[in-house]
């Protein structure tokens, strides 16, 4: 991963983390961050996916 890609995925992960807060309000900030390039959106979606993956694994019910 290049430095640029790494910075992008770090920033995207921060957004995914902040959006997970029930009190998150900065939707315009997220819009402005996503707008400059489709790479931002792709990084954000990857970060969201990882967040949901972890949540899903930790809440899975294995009793059967």
């Amino acid at each position: 991963m290049t430095t640029h890609q790494l910075e992008l995925s770090n920033a995207a992960r921060l957004w995914a983390m902040r959006v997970a807060d029930p009190d998150f309000r900065d939707w315009d900030g997220l819009t402005r961050w996503l707008e400059p390039s489709r790479a931002h959106l792709a990084a954000y979606e990857a970060a969201v996916e990882t967040d949901e993956w972890a949540k899903q694994i930790l809440t899975k019910d294995f009793e059967r």
Binding site: T31, R32, L41
Partner: peptide, 8 residues
Amino acid sequence: LRFLAARG
């Protein structure tokens, strides 16, 4: 709509 556009 601006948010949705940014969201793909």
